[in-house]
Structure formats: structure tokens, C-alpha cells
């Protein structure tokens, strides 16, 4: 990709970029995207969450996977940082812990692309049985 230095350069590149993206159909529908939230409070950042977030972005660009990557605060799993919550469209979010850039590759290759579960999931969603429905 050519170097962008000024806002003018950005304008030129934007046109090229738009041809590669199918933005418009999806832009009104954030639920249609895979959403990744990297925990980036003090604990996450100190444990290397930035490298994890950068890897999500790079890998998504390499593999041409449409991701929305955002930061979130501390989810209370400081012991397992860096952590990230991954939500596939129409599915419950899953939190992965003890991440590093290699693990991010595995999440994208296996979970995001194929829906395969991998090691390192932190159990967060405890659902209780609704007694009235038994």
C-alpha cells in the first residue's frame, strides 16, 4: 500500500479501498459482523493487550475477514489477561483468555472462520435452568 502522509493522500487511497470493501450492505447492520472486544484496562494493557489487538487487525486484513475490533474495559478476569470477547453473528459471545498473537491467529483461523471451539475459553455465561419451564 502506498504511503499516506497527508489528508490528500488519504482521500486518494480511500477510493481504491472502497472498491475492495463491501461496506454499504453491512454498515447499517453491526450484528452482521464478527465483533471482537479486547479488554484494555490497566491490567490488560500491562499484560500485552495491544499486541493482541494489533494482531487481530493485521490478521483480519491478511485473511480478508471483516471484523469490528474494539477495546473494552476490565471484565474482571485480570488473572487471565490479555482477554478478548469474540461474538459471531447470531451466537453468544465467548471470552478467550491468556492471549498472545499466535493465539489470535488460531482464533481467526479456527473459531471465526470455521466456528471450531479452541482451548482457552473462560466460562462466563452461566445460565440457570428456568424452573417454570420444566
Amino acid at each position: 500500500m502506498a504511503k499516506v502522509k497527508s489528508l490528500e493522500d488519504l482521500k486518494k487511497l480511500k477510493t481504491q479501498l472502497e472498491n475492495n470493501l463491501n461496506l454499504r450492505e453491512k454498515s447499517d447492520n453491526p450484528d452482521g459482523y464478527v465483533q471482537v472486544k479486547v479488554a484494555m484496562a490497566t491490567c490488560g494493557i500491562a499484560a500485552g493487550a495491544r499486541d493482541v489487538m494489533n494482531r487481530f487487525i493485521e490478521k483480519a486484513n491478511e485473511e480478508k475477514v471483516d471484523l469490528i475490533v474494539t477495546q473494552t474495559g476490565c471484565m474482571g478476569y485480570c488473572y487471565a489477561e490479555p482477554t478478548a470477547e469474540v461474538k459471531l453473528p447470531g451466537k453468544d459471545p465467548i471470552v478467550f483468555g491468556y492471549l498472545n498473537p499466535q493465539k489470535v491467529d488460531e482464533i481467526i483461523d479456527k473459531y471465526i472462520k470455521n466456528g471450531e471451539l479452541i482451548e482457552g475459553i473462560i466460562p462466563v455465561n452461566y445460565q440457570t435452568i428456568d424452573k417454570d419451564n420444566i
Binding site: 500500500m1 499516506v4 493522500d9 488519504l10 480511500k14 461496506l23 487487525i57 486484513n61 471484523l67 475490533v69
Partner: peptide, 20 residues
Amino acid sequence: EILGDTPINNTQVVKMVEGM
């Protein structure tokens, strides 16, 4: 303003912004 409809949180746009 320059990006218009292109979202600023697109992963490729972000890399361009970082480079700039």
C-alpha cells in the same frame, strides 16, 4: 469528513491512519 461513508473503524482504514 474525508472518509465520508467509509467507517473509520474499518481495519484497513485504521492501518492507513496509523501510517499517516
